[in-house]
Nucleic acid binder design. Structure first.
Lengths: 356, 356
DNA sequence: TATACTCTTGAAAACGCTTTCAGAAAGCGT
DNA sequence: ACGCTTTCTGAAAGCGTTTTCAAGAGTATA
């Protein structure tokens, strides 16, 4: 047995006594094949342990059956559910998933594009605009996640209802807890989500005739460390505030840490709310009040729109996934009896009165 | 301009006045090319916006420059840092990353293997043994993460020092906090990590001459829900215990929840410790004492070993990454003053005495 | 019985690169 | 000048599929 190279379609054909074209046909089900022959082919494939070479199929058929995912970095609690949704949906649609993170120097890296994928999912600003233009001009299927396309290029976008979510949150803080001086911890520069959350924030303020105070806006960077220092700075500067709307849940953690360190009790002294409702949000203490963004769904929906594009169908220009207010404790609500005890202040100070 | 198909190497060659072989050579740097010609080629590539088709290269060169990652499911706090390490290392080594989760029915799915990757990273038991045998018999590069190969096949393994980590943890519980009836929440059936952690647990018990009590061992499934019900069952059954060693941090969360619900205070009544030190561990309250597993490093190391295998070099048969004890509060240690207040029991019962 | 279809099938032409192979050009020692 | 290397280059042969295209075998129609 000198010939130990993996079997090809030709080997299968010989073994089954048919032509390679026929093997290809039973492989792809493109054209009917006489039942008995098809069985012989299948048997031969089984016996030879034949696995078609992906590259050859791609080269011949011009379809990669692969979609690419581009993201700025792999981190934060947000990432995992999104990837889960994307992977699952891609799988179901029969696509493989190629993942690239662009946090590192992209120079000289084999890029994701027409040459190795059928379409691209692009998260936030993980791709240079130039490349985006190039792909667009090629009519290459692309879907943006949490990012509006530059120059209103007609590229489908999937995002969550940031503005509404933020507005609900702020409204709750104002109406239920009487907060009026609410800090907004903005996300990273140029981040779409952050911009819309700020609009929701302002809208809610306006509704309640509370003047916008720019000294209450600072950057928290969707990151717990950054949020931590941001709140510390506010405290040092003696800025007066009674609530913090963190740009996302990760930032909320940082905010809570800074407040605890400064002996400001959450939620009695200061309410803290986040955004996303990542898995650990409910396990913080106090449990984080936040807005649930259907992260996994966003991933699934993105794949759905992308496959449409790939199939030459029309895709939704903008898909906004509904967000939902998740009220827990960090705003001041809903202290379950078993956790209330932990919240009672040591020195016997005013213990919190359940507001619901 | 009727010809709008993407340019091929032939177009570039024509445009630069050289043969396609030469273009290929400047593309890959395989053979020296006259400087002036090389420049012409590069210029032509630039002008035509030439991007080599991945499939064609793979087909011709038999190298995919892609590695595959197979995992049971995308979830848990553990996942994200591991993927981060893998992606980064793969990127640095010049490989693309194909991700497959096998949580769903794998039937009829285009699989990962020789036909579309140069090597595979296999996490826990995300691959049927039969397929593993097949790949091994083909000498296909494979590295296992957190899983010992069946029948001691010579497949490299990357794992963390589970036994030592667990032993350190249990030792700490016994020596520093005087715990003697320590529950062990085992991970999912057949999970390698879990087995070794149990060995560490037993070893530590033995060292301190504490008899092993099988009624203290139950399954927590590396999952917060499962751990929750497991602890509840223990409580209902009236099993007496003063500490819980959760199989991992996710399970620790579930355990803490169940204990709180049963009004057993952590860490005063019961110490709880986890394993992994996932990002949120420090933010739980009380902050989780656990063992730090260098998850991201595991990912990087796995890629390193895999690329060795791909390059025909020898790989390390077993790489055990060092673990490190992370002492926080849930064992009973280190109550920072600002969090102590939250731990004081409501009814004015014995407040905890700092043990450090 | 001839005519026109409908089904199946195989031969062969792509698909876009890499890589061997041999030859041309250039450099070198004598 | 003469052979001998050493460099560089192009022609052409794959790589393993899919996909025409045309033809053969039946079947139904006339």
């Amino acid at each position: 047995m000198p010939k130990s190279r993996p079997p090809t379609i030709a080997d299968v054909a010989r073994h089954a006594g048919v032509s390679i074209a026929t093997v290809s046909r039973v492989l792809n089900g493109t054209t009917p094949v006489q039942a008995e022959k098809a069985d012989r082919v299948r048997l031969a494939m089984e016996e030879l342990q034949f696995v078609p070479r992906h590259a050859a199929r791609v080269l011949a058929s011009k379809r990669t059956n692969t979609i690419g995912l581009l993201l700025p970095e792999i981190s934060g609690a947000f990432f995992s559910p999104m990837l889960k949704g994307i992977e699952a949906a891609a799988h179901e649609a029969g696509y493989d998933l190629l993942v690239h993170s662009t946090q590192q120097v992209t120079t000289a890296r084999r890029r994701l594009g027409e040459h190795n994928t059928d379409g691209l999912l692009i998260f936030t600003n993980s791709l240079a605009p130039g490349e985006l233009y190039r792909l667009h001009s090629l009519d290459f299927p692309v879907v943006l996640l949490h990012q509006i396309p530059p120059d209103s290029l007609d590229i489908p976008v999937i995002a969550v209802e940031n503005k509404d979510g933020a507005a609900m949150l702020i409204k709750h803080l104002i109406e239920t807890h009487g907060r009026r001086r609410i800090v907004y911890l903005r996300g990273p520069e140029g981040h779409e989500d952050s911009v819309w959350r700020e609009r929701g924030y302002r809208e809610a303020l306006e509704t309640h005739a509370i003047a916008f105070d720019s000294s209450l806006i600072t950057s928290g960077g969707f990151d717990d460390e950054e949020a931590f220092t941001a709140i510390q700075r506010l405290l040092e500067d003696g800025i007066d505030f009674d609530a913090v709307f963190a740009g996302d849940d990760d930032a909320a953690i940082g905010a809570m840490r800074a407040l605890k360190l400064a002996e400001r009790v959450v939620p009695q002294d200061v309410s803290v709310v986040g955004f996303d409702d990542v898995p650990f949000a409910r396990y913080l203490s106090p449990a984080l009040t936040t807005v649930r963004a259907p992260i996994e769904q966003v991933g699934r929906e993105a794949v759905r729109q992308l496959t449409r594009l790939i199939n030459g169908e029309q895709a939704e220009a903008l898909t906004l996934m509904r967000t939902e207010l998740v009220i827990r404790e960090s705003c001041g609500c809903l202290l379950s009896s078993l956790q209330k005890e932990f919240l009672t202040r040591a020195g016997g100070e005013t213990s919190y009165n359940e507001s619901l």
